[in-house]
């Protein structure tokens, strides 16, 4: 499996990563190599095997519907890059 430069650019866009022009080729090579490694899976017959997303067949535990977390805006926004009037600010979002 080989990933070309265009594909790297596409993936980077999807992942919201700005990749330097200089690095694109090396990412393409590395990603291709990783996919070659991963391709070893193809040699195994997995028909009839159920996918495993967790080590256990455990069941989701449910939380009682109680409010126990209260306002900590001041703490949270003390570490925020940019806020005003209690809002997080980002460059203008155009709809």
């Amino acid at each position: 499996m080989s990933i070309d430069v265009d594909e790297v650019t596409k993936i980077a866009k999807l992942a919201c990563l700005s990749v330097n022009e200089d690095d694109v080729q090396s990412y393409a090579t590395n990603l291709s190599n990783i996919l070659d490694l991963v391709a070893q899976m193809d040699e195994v017959d997995t028909s009839g095997v159920t996918p495993m997303s967790h080590p256990f067949d455990a069941v989701q535990r449910l939380r009682e519907d109680v409010v126990t977390d209260f306002d900590r805006r001041e703490d949270f926004q003390a570490i925020a890059p940019k806020t005003e009037d209690g809002l997080y600010l980002v460059p203008k979002v155009i709809e």
């Binding site: 993936i11 990563l17 700005s18 990749v19 690095d23 990412y27 590395n30 990603l31 990783i34 996919l35």
Partner: peptide
């Protein structure tokens, strides 16, 4: 792009793909 190192970006890209 500026704050993640190369290995992190590499893995994010593999996973995204």
């Amino acid at each position: 792009g500026e704050a993640f190192g190369m290995e992190v970006q590499r893995r994010i890209m593999v996973g995204t793909y």
